[in-house]
Design a protein around this nucleic acid. Sequence first.
DNA 1: TTGCCTTTGTCAAATAATTAACGGATAATA
DNA 2: TATTATCCGTTAATTATTTGACAAAGGCAA
Lengths: 216, 216
Amino acid sequence: MAKNGNISTSVIKRLPRYYRFLGELEKQEVERISSRELSEMMKLTASQIRQDLNCFGGFGQQGYGYHVASLREEIGRILGVDKDFPTILIGAGNLGKAIAMHINFGTRGCRLVGIFDANPRLTGETVGSIAIRHTDEIEEFCNEEHPVIAVLCIPKANTQAIADKLVELGIKSFWNFSHYDLTIDHKGIEVENVHLGDSLLTLTYRTNQLGKVEEE
Amino acid sequence: MAKNGNISTSVIKRLPRYYRFLGELEKQEVERISSRELSEMMKLTASQIRQDLNCFGGFGQQGYGYHVASLREEIGRILGVDKDFPTILIGAGNLGKAIAMHINFGTRGCRLVGIFDANPRLTGETVGSIAIRHTDEIEEFCNEEHPVIAVLCIPKANTQAIADKLVELGIKSFWNFSHYDLTIDHKGIEVENVHLGDSLLTLTYRTNQLGKVEEE
DNA sequence: TTGCCTTTGTCAAATAATTAACGGATAATA
DNA sequence: TATTATCCGTTAATTATTTGACAAAGGCAA
């Protein structure tokens, strides 16, 4: 069934969105849905939905459509929501705390097991149910708990050095919020750079264009 | 010079990254740079850089390259960093506060002028230098201050209704962090949906794939 | 059961994005 | 000043992505 032979990133980036919409449908107790109906909800083409889903296997049935619950489960499995990757967060400033509190790691295949900050005044303070540790403790912690994913909410100046050190300590993936383009040369390491500032800037651009259109 | 006739979103999404790298180069007092050098830094092709920049005009010079400071200024102008769009933020929970504190709106063509929350216990509390107002005051505030951009850090259940209301009050652009795909049917309205959860899920997927590669 | 309607999976076509190639302009150097 | 190497802007080729089309499979109603 799973013909999982290198899927394009365009497809992968759409999967979480399918997963969310199917979750909503499941909540609304919708049992089945056709690619056409789903395409109207999600504002994309039915063809694209069928193409995307077919990268992983034939989850649908002619004349019927897709069974919402099982399709959602399949996509979840593909994404890895059933996994339990131990995850640490470095940098418990405004953003770090907010990420720790606001993101539901558990429903996304991750488990937040440690929070670290270089500021000793934060040591011992708890975020959610997790106590902030000093960054000096990272090495020992990694040797014991073997976290796989690191969330970086630290100043850009430190990011590369800390990331390199974390790779040595066994971290495989970085979710990087620092204002820095993290790249790791080792292969077998994944990096997701977020760059909220860039996101806002593209909105500024489009907002600015709106004004220009009006002028014409 | 500016041959600004509908630029593809692929290009637009790369502009903030160019802008950042050029900023770093300027800080390091690098005066000029060639597309080849920049391509090595940014890990993309020189051809793409030249192609991208040429959407807006010939900023470079043969045999010399690009003048860092003026190229950065040009890209900044294209993005609209010199603008001053009044911006409000709705929802002063963990994430809302962190965004308000962490994002430098001023360097991105925006000015944060108001923060609102439905919880009356937060009213009067300040975030940075801005006092939190109750959401009941939004209408009056918009009529007086005419904000253009709204940052939404609210629960998904309220998002569409609040956004629709804000459109009536003159908001043109939404930077939406709520776990909901905001769409506005009016044209002349821009939406940037962030979806941090989706970003993490794609990392979970890739982390999971790493494990599978090892097994082979 | 029969026939019609729906809808998928897949292949082909169209569109978009990226990369390569190269002429011509400029800088650097002797 | 002449020569060589650099490097942009642009066009063409390649690759990737999206959309359209349709046969085959299955649902549904009579």
